[in-house]
Amino acid sequence: MDERAHSRAGGDRKLMASRSARRASAFVEKSIHSLLETADYAARAERRAESRGLLQRLDPRSKLVGILLLIFAVVFSRALWPIALVFAAAVALALGSGIRLRAVAVSIWIPALLFTGAIALPSVFVVEHGGRSAAFLVSRSLTCATLSALLVFSTPWPALLKALRALRVPAIAVAMLGMTYRYLFSILDIARDMMESRRSRTVGALSGAEQRRIAAASAGVLLSRSVQLSREVHLAMLSRGYRGEAFTLEERRMRPRDWTSLALFAGFAALVTGFGR
């Protein structure tokens, strides 16, 4: 990003020119930005999940089920303070797992506050008991977002998807989700290459209609290539004995400490639900 910032027009006089250039390729620029941001987010989450910490050491299944129970407790609560209690616990867990609060703040808290805050704020003025209601909305969504961030930041994504088997999600759905995750990055790369080569070929201003045509054609190229890719992948699967049935290797048995942690999660969630009635 920054290299581009420097290579672009430097002085005030050039600002106007670069502004129209920006308009010209706005679609491409913005899309590249979104794609980079996604790749970046994924890379950061993957790195964090590999570090050692309290949550990282737990079995993904007990972590998934435990955190889901906490999310349910938060959603069920009819009082504010039990939600705050879970939030405090989530912060403690993050600290114990070496997940830096700054990272959580930047990627979860600020966005969640901005997002839900903007939606909740007007209710203070237009809804009866709006202040309390806004507090519910904000605290609930903030706490739930923090909990799911704990899950994602402490568990490799493939392991997390596989843990869905513990929730009785059918094997074929888990296999498809795993494959979706895998091809996300291939298609992201194809899209980025396409956009970047488009950027290097674009000179001068493009009309809105022209930009729309480029956007739709990009999506169309991507679609054709994805269908082609899926046909090839199908052959590769057949070649290795695929007959339409999905199998996952059964995970190792839950260790005592996984059961203990699950029990702790469940106990805490039950407590919170009790308080929040």
Binding site: P158, L161, A236, M237, S239, R240, G241, F247, L249
Partner: peptide
């Protein structure tokens, strides 16, 4: 399928599993 194996040209096609371990376990599982 057990007696004949094909390695595809493109790794994007050949490696369709989410992790290396899953990739290698795929054939035996099937």
């Amino acid at each position: 399928r057990r007696r004949v194996g094909l390695v595809f040209q493109s790794p994007d096609v050949q490696l369709f599993n989410p992790t290396v371990f899953d990739e290698i376990a795929f054939g035996p599982l099937q």
